[in-house]
Amino acid sequence: MSAASEWSGGAIEEPLGERAKAAGIRVGLASPALLWVLLIVLIPNAIMLLYSFWTNGLGTIIQEFTTKNYSQALQSNVVRALLQRTFLIAVAASLIATAIAYPLAYLIVRRAGRYKLPLALLVVVPLWVSYLMRVFAWKIILGEKGVLNGLLQQAGVIDHPIKALLYSKVTVILTLTYVAVPYVFLSIFTALERLPTALYDAAGDCGASEWSTFRDIIWPLSRPAAVIGFAIAFVITFGDYVTPALVGGLQGTMLGSIILQEFGTANNWPLGAAIAMVILVVSFVFLGAVSLLARTEAVID
């Protein structure tokens, strides 16, 4: 806060009345931010919370407090199974994405030399291609008449196209992993890139081999970034409904699809709101737990 104090009135001793006035001006200046938080964050989420405690009565919303939606959602086998599946799919996709992105980032930072930046950019460029396209492309590749089956048939590996490639849990995990890799990579790459190369030298100098250097120095220092990357991936994949809708089929339905249904054809907003709240709470609790892993005492300057 250096340039900052210009607007802040300064810390010089002022009479009490003056100080209160200055504080008033500051709140006034900050009012757009307060308004933003109120209108875009607090009120919508409060209303969503309200909805989740109301009920649906033939196309109209009955505005009476009830926990029926939650008990209905949490007792429903479908919702519970889907919650479990969605959670597992999101964790699996995020873990695999982290397992792919970490070694790749390490390799690029340590070995790519002057090609470091171009190679890193190549990993994140797919983020700039339409999200739908990235998901849908897998349908072209994995479909019954898709590219992979075509290739395999042409190569004579198989006689008949494999149907099971598309519309399964595995397909959803694969596609979500694909979507998540660049985000996780970005988080890890920037962290590894920030580590001074002298740390590698210093560890080698102390007698540590490349593996020991990684285990004792580099991993402890980059673990928070890996955890953050994993968390970003989890948030993205946990609430996704586009991917399961396109490549999931029945096997790959996720919780997002149900919400879509409640707000669409079923037209049961309160139940949808309750499920959305469940998603929100589960992701917050999970991220809270995960963030414990990201704690570190190290300060890198």
Partner: peptide, 17 residues
């Protein structure tokens, strides 16, 4: 790591954690 040499680095390179 196979040399009997130790270095004091310009910016110290202490392990921050």
């Amino acid at each position: 790591y196979k040399r009997d040499v130790n270095t004091v680095f310009q910016n110290y390179a202490l392990f921050p954690h």
